[in-house]
Simulated assay, not measured.
Amino acid sequence: MDGSLLDIAEVAQRSGLAPSALRFYEKKGLITPAGRNGLRRTYRPDVLEHLALITCARGAGFSIAEIDRFLVARPSDADLRLRMATKAHDLDEQIGRLTRLRDSLRHAAVCTHEPLVDCPDFKRAVGNAGQARQVGQVPSAPDADRHA
């Protein structure tokens, strides 16, 4: 085997993905093996960067079909660029909601209100976590000192 090629087990270990996931991504056309070493698939080292992108996109909620299109996108694909911009906006909103929820939980961790879920600051922050906000308008965490 060429020393620069990685065996499927090594790719799985380095990427943190199961060999079955690699075979699935291959079947869907997202990655391509360089060949075989006996019965085992081999890959070029750059497959690891490709897999990192796929893993990140999956974690952000992209479908396999969306990732497939993204991986072959050309600057002239205006429709895809619009969908990517829309997805980026959606992610900004999700990040804002999660940030507000995180801040609410941090407040609850130090709040002395009894019971915690009846704390007005916590209720307000949790209520805000469910609302769509404009990007960049993430409220700061409620001040835990109010209940001390």
Rank of each mutant, 00 (worst) to 15 (best):
C56M: 10
D145V: 13
N128E: 15
D79Q: 05
I31F: 07
K27G: 07
R83Y: 03
S4Y: 12
L116H: 07
L39I: 14
E66A: 11
A65M: 04
R74S: 13
D145N: 10
Q134D: 14
Q134C: 05
R44Q: 11
L6T: 01
F24A: 03
A12W: 11
Q134R: 12
R14C: 09
L80C: 01
A21V: 10
R81M: 04
L80V: 07
V11L: 12
R44V: 05
K87E: 11
A148Q: 00
Y25C: 08
T32P: 02
Q13F: 13
L6Q: 00
Q94E: 14
L39C: 00
R83S: 09
T42I: 14
L17R: 11
D7I: 13
P115F: 10
L39N: 12
L91V: 01
K87N: 04
D68P: 02
A34G: 08
D118I: 11
G130F: 15
S4I: 13
P33L: 05
V117W: 13
S20C: 01
C111D: 02
A129E: 12
Q131T: 12
R97P: 05
D2S: 10
G35Q: 08
G127M: 08
C111Q: 04
R41G: 03
A129Y: 11
Y43S: 06
K123R: 15
N37K: 15
A21L: 07
P19H: 04
A73N: 09
R97G: 02
R44Y: 13
E49L: 15
S15G: 06
A18Y: 11
V126T: 07
K123D: 15
T32L: 11
F122N: 01
H50L: 12
G59Y: 09
E93R: 12
L51Y: 02
H113P: 02
G35D: 10
S104M: 02
D90E: 15
G61D: 03
T112H: 10
L22E: 07
R97A: 04
F24T: 09
D46A: 10
Y25I: 02
P33E: 06
L91F: 07
A132N: 12
G3V: 11
V117S: 05
F24P: 01
S140L: 14
D7S: 15
R40C: 13
V138C: 09
H147C: 14
T42E: 04
D68E: 10
G61F: 00
A132V: 15
G35V: 08
H107V: 09
G136E: 05
D79E: 14
A85H: 03
A144Q: 08
G130I: 10
S76H: 05
T55A: 04
L71K: 06
F24Q: 05
V47W: 09
H147K: 10
P142M: 08
A141K: 03
D118S: 15
A9L: 10
A18D: 13
I54Y: 03
E93W: 00
S63V: 07
A132G: 00
L6Y: 12
G38S: 12
F24W: 03
I67A: 00
Q94W: 07
L53E: 03
S140F: 14
A88V: 11
Q137C: 08
Y25L: 13
K123L: 14
R44H: 14
L30P: 03
V11S: 07
A109E: 13
R100E: 08
T99P: 01
G38K: 00
V135T: 12
E93K: 15
A109L: 02
I54G: 00
A109Q: 13
A60K: 06
L5M: 10
L53F: 03
R58Q: 01
A57K: 01
P75L: 06
